[in-house]
């Protein structure tokens, strides 16, 4: 993804300055500038893909409808939090039959479970512009601890963007249909932009 180096750098510096001495980057925006509550807005996207045996395309798609927000703690980045909700009914894939299958009782069972939710329980900074977010993912009525890797990609005074990646095993959620033809592991690739509330 093409991120303007400049803004990414600025954002990087901003997060980095939690640990750096404030004097080191007197010019850079302070964390307190990034701190605040954000609402997830466009141009965000939540994409997923599942590999298939013998290589080939596998299953890929995205969710058209989701919502959520996050809060960046100005004093301690590790006290930040994120929550999001996605609506499996809005799943998009390369053809209708695949979408219907994903919505059906075989996978998301969207008729009985309208949402998939994630609520973070901990945020750990792993680098100048990276963090690991751990939290509770609930799908099909089952809640499990999952982990996502977050990378800061863009930042300005009104909005902030991340990529969020994670590999989720689907069998614990009762979604193991199609294994082992299709991998048990779903790769999530989300590009999330938050706008200040």
């Amino acid at each position: 993804m093409m991120v303007t180096i400049n803004s990414a750098l600025k954002a990087t510096v901003c997060v980095a300055c939690v640990f750096a001495t404030p004097a080191a980057n007197a010019q850079a925006p302070a964390l307190t500038d990034a701190a605040g509550s954000y609402r997830i807005t466009s141009p965000s996207s939540i994409q997923f893909s599942i590999g298939q045996v013998g290589g080939g395309g596998g299953i890929a798609g995205n969710f058209a409808k989701f919502s959520g927000g996050f809060r960046i703690d100005g004093a301690n980045i590790e006290r930040s939090s994120v929550e999001f909700t996605l609506y499996p009914e809005s799943v998009r894939a390369r053809e209708r039959r695949i979408e219907d299958f994903l919505r059906s009782s075989a996978v998301f069972d969207a008729a009985n479970f309208q949402t998939v939710t994630f609520r973070s329980t901990s945020v750990r900074q792993t680098g100048p512009d990276t963090a690991t977010v751990e939290g509770a993912l609930t799908a099909r009525g089952k809640t499990r601890k999952e982990r996502f890797a977050v990378t800061l990609t863009d930042w300005d005074r009104r909005s902030i963007s991340f990529t969020i990646r994670g590999s989720i095993r689907r069998s614990p959620y009762g979604m193991d249909v199609g294994t082992p033809i299709y991998s048990n592991v779903v790769q999530f690739d989300m590009k999330i932009t938050g706008r200040r509330r």
Partner: peptide, 12 residues
């Protein structure tokens, strides 16, 4: 749909 034929989950 391009679903692989995975013969008895042993061989494509």
């Amino acid at each position: 749909l391009d679903i692989p034929s995975f013969y008895f989950n042993v061989m494509v």
